[in-house]
Amino acid sequence: MERTEELFDRIERYLNNTLSEEERNMLELQMQTDEALAIEVAKHRELHEILGDKQTLDFRNKINKIHQEVVTTRKRTTKTTGKSATSKTRFPYKKLAIAAILVVGLGVLFWDHSTNTNTLDLYTTYYKPYPVDDTKRGEIEEELANIYTSYEQGAYVTVISALEKQLEQVEKPKLRLYLGNSYLRTDQEQKAATQFRKIDRKSVFYEDAQWYLALTYLKLQVQDSTRYFLENVIDYKGIHQKTAKKILDKLQ
């Protein structure tokens, strides 16, 4: 049986009791003569019944995260203690073994450190402040022109207060990108995320907003959220798609 969007919609409406009586009767009649359709409906019903238990799914999601955390810690611990045990069995080479442990120990220390900073390295590699476009300065208001100049010069504290005032008067998604970037540059990541989140899906700046949200969470080392926004960027199929895929690959 070919799976189509229409078929899925129809089955879901049947399971949710939102089909009209006529549509419902027709589907039930079809199921009696079409075994493949009846099997497909049964599969959907099972999915809905089992995966409709939100409470359990939330719990599983929570323990998945705890699991990752505990397993990673255990692997690191095993790695360190495993090396020490080996050294005891090689008494004639004690000095060499101690040196090896030191090297491994330092390696583990370095590895731990580099794992923690890995996402930060990615952030440093891929983050570029949202650029000021080529609009001739004469074409925009003087105040805005000054803000852009300050932004280009890296005077983010000045930019933040000026942009906050501007955005109180008028909603401009592009200005939110500059404000978000200024927050990001001054280590105010949560405030940056709030600005990027305010940019609506319908806006032409939506892709940029999702891109900077991904980078914000990359900087905060929150992998789930980073992945979520990178997936959004990839789905958008815009200018950041390729780079988003690269980062996502590196995170996996």
């Binding site: 809905h48 999601n61 992945r227 979520y228 959004n232």
Partner: peptide, 24 residues
């Protein structure tokens, strides 16, 4: 079922969870 559900991307899980809750 739950194990395979968690193999999906975060976005897929978000949308499907709402579908399974019976949301339109």
């Amino acid at each position: 079922f739950q194990a395979y559900f968690f193999k999906l991307t975060i976005k897929c899980r978000e949308i499907l969870a709402l579908v399974f809750e019976g949301k339109s």
